[in-house]
Simulated assay, not measured.
Amino acid sequence: MAISPEHQIYAELFADAPDMAVGFLRDLGVNVPDYERSEVTSCDLGHVDPVERRSDVAIMLRGPGPDDPHDHLMGIVVEVQRDQKERKRFTWPEYVASLRSRHECPVTLLTICPRQSVADWYAEPIHLGHPGFVLRPLVVGPDDIPVVTDPGAVAASPTLGVLSAAAHGAGRTDVLDALHSGLSVIDPEKAAKYIGYSLHLLADTNGQKALETLMMADTYEYSSTWADSLRAEGEADMLLRILAAKGIDIPDGARERISRCRDVGQLAAWADKSAAITHIDELFDE
């Protein structure tokens, strides 16, 4: 199944910052154990059969346990859903059971939905058939994402800043001000990536235009060239991640061609094309 750039961006945000998933779970009332570190683990949650079972992000919380100072304390399956798909009601219980069986620890399902109507739909309980065996997905929609207006909060958690911009930036310039100012003090390469993500998630909205204007404003000493370069870097990084997620081999020459491209229109065309290709050469075919 083709992975959209928007879908991949949300997954990458949680892969970049696994602790962010913990924060959302605690906000939803989940009793998350104290842990020493969180880490992204294998997303392959299937069995030995021809059917692929792969979650968007799988996270493991580790810390002191009865037999191991780095014991598996809790697993988190993060799923990103942009549309209503009945099939997910059958595959999600398998994801949870597979990760639980593999690591022999409790596992929680966290579903991220960029659209509130989709979030409300997925919040319905999943009845598995066995008496009392019900999976109730924990769902985060735009209404559950905090409105981040403090640049310091963005600098401390850039991924949360991007989520806030995507959920609220189309109508709130203070969120975009905080995103812009907060990202200006972190590593430039990471800032470029997160600006690219934000522009993509705000595509075709007033928020996208406002963020681009903010980046180019003289008061922030950003030029149009610099802004375009940042956006292109983010789009190129996103394209490479999509290709990797599809299992397409990317030779060094192709990787460099994509990474060095600063034509946002060309990168967007390649991204659209990536959904239907099986070999890297097809991406560059005219």
Rank of each mutant, 00 (worst) to 15 (best):
E6T: 15
D228Y: 14
D68N: 08
M74V: 14
I59T: 08
A156Q: 10
P5T: 02
L73N: 03
P188D: 04
Y95P: 02
W226C: 09
I242L: 07
C261F: 08
D174F: 04
G247E: 12
H72M: 01
R260F: 12
S42Q: 13
V78C: 02
G75R: 05
A275P: 01
W226T: 12
R257M: 12
A153M: 06
F24Q: 00
F133Y: 14
T41A: 06
S198G: 11
Y10T: 01
M20F: 11
P93R: 01
D67P: 10
A11T: 10
P106A: 07
A268W: 14
S184N: 06
Y220D: 09
A17I: 10
G196M: 09
E6I: 14
V140A: 05
E86S: 15
E104S: 11
G129W: 11
M20D: 09
S223R: 03
H180R: 14
P131V: 06
Y95V: 03
E79K: 02
D252R: 15
A21N: 06
D281H: 10
V185A: 07
A97W: 07
A170V: 04
V139K: 01
G171L: 07
D263Q: 10
K193I: 14
S259R: 12
D285Y: 10
D263M: 04
E256N: 15
L176G: 02
A192W: 05
V48W: 10
I250S: 11
D204W: 10
E124Q: 14
I126Y: 10
P50R: 03
I242Q: 12
V154G: 01
D34T: 13
